[in-house]
Design a protein around this nucleic acid. Sequence first.
RNA 1: UAAGUAAAUCGGAUAGUCGCAGGUACCUAUUACUUGGAUACCUGAGGAAAGUCGGAGCUCCACAGGGCAGGGUGCUGGAUAACGUCCAGUGGGGGUGACCCUAAGGAAAGUGCCACAGAAACAAACCGCCUGGCACUCAGUGUGCUGCGAAUAUGUAUAUUCGCAGCACACUGAGUGCCAGGUAAGGGUGGAAAGGUGAGGUAAGAGCUCACCAGCGCUUAGGUGACUAAGCGGCUCGGUAAACCCCACCUGGAGCAAGACCAAAUAGGGAAACAAUGAAGUGGCCCGCUUCGUUUCCGGGUUAGGUCGCUAGAGAUGUCAGGCAACUGGCAUCCCAGAUAGAUGACUAUCUAAAACAGAACUCCGCUUAUAGAUUUGCUUACCUC
Length: 111
Amino acid sequence: MLSRKFRISKKKEYKKIYKNGRRVSGKFIIVFVMRNFSKNSRFGVVTSRKLGNAVKRNRTRRKLRAVIRQNMERMKNYADVVIVAKKSAVDADFYLLEKDFLFVMRKAGLC
RNA sequence: UAAGUAAAUCGGAUAGUCGCAGGUACCUAUUACUUGGAUACCUGAGGAAAGUCGGAGCUCCACAGGGCAGGGUGCUGGAUAACGUCCAGUGGGGGUGACCCUAAGGAAAGUGCCACAGAAACAAACCGCCUGGCACUCAGUGUGCUGCGAAUAUGUAUAUUCGCAGCACACUGAGUGCCAGGUAAGGGUGGAAAGGUGAGGUAAGAGCUCACCAGCGCUUAGGUGACUAAGCGGCUCGGUAAACCCCACCUGGAGCAAGACCAAAUAGGGAAACAAUGAAGUGGCCCGCUUCGUUUCCGGGUUAGGUCGCUAGAGAUGUCAGGCAACUGGCAUCCCAGAUAGAUGACUAUCUAAAACAGAACUCCGCUUAUAGAUUUGCUUACCUC
């Protein structure tokens, strides 16, 4: 899990990122990116009810956060990032998610 | 050993690295409170956290008050803060048994319904059985009359007797039809047909009488009670209340986005209408209570911000005492998640077969539903051995 200063917390901010950010999609995730020009990046993970019950949603979100935490230092530019999990992400292994995350980040020009 | 039955427990473990939330201690930066950062230690999802079905605490609406309506519960006793929950029993049903299931008050307060079938579904005569009357047919018997024949008597005619045939009447029996009545034993229909079986009885039948059984009522005994047992009585009364209804008991509404505080803001205006027998709070209606001008339009403005509520509680564990038990009480020890886009994760190694259902959101007690697998205990029924 990330510390609180690396999270996006307000509903308004989510709305703003959905509206103004760049949309990049991978195999397991869809990412909305918006440059923020501050000292660090901030992340938000969204798991909708389509993914399954609460246990499945929680596990997917935690795996994605683990991916973010372990790869945060590689990022060159700072941005606000919202990651929306697809249904296929529920059963995906950690290293597959990591590969997909790095692919998407490269596509978005963040690392 | 196998099959079953009832209950209880667990529901991945261990080690390492990195990481998250809360608390405590200490250091440090900014410091009026405060806030941020570092380090160490401790704690960190479930048996159902789920469905949100029942109940309660808590909060606001009046200190939640009265009546009507509506809703709920429904064998008895107990437990509990309370319940539609639990425990112990009673009645009924199922099982060889351990055991399981059971919305289980009232149908002589009233109303409704009982499809189809059937004569009839609430107090019933279709068929059948029996009795009586009338009509007709047949048979038999008796009497009378007529005819014929025979015998006897005497006076070639009459009388008497007998037989046969026909007619009429009466009686008896059988059959058919109609009418009046008695019958609920039998038939058929149905989930259900007015207690069941047997014997007596009768014109035929019937609780009409008797015995046993079932039902109803009463008495006595036992039990707090549901009820049970024994005896007696009069002889019998359909089902349905998860149909209305009656009876007894319970029941105000909304819910932590409750609600409280802080910041910011609801500003200040214009026009029209109605009005103290008014309007709102008040979300079933009336009363009562509280507050007071209310509503519409024009124009202007607009945060699901922060703190609390928020976890020490009908609390957990152990033990002792009471109780068949649910449960209650005493003592000792302990503090055991409190997030707010939402904390439990990732990777590696080992262990068996490589794990099911599934994630707290104010709290608690229950119920219901989902659940791979593992373990333990009591009991029952079979079979084998001693």
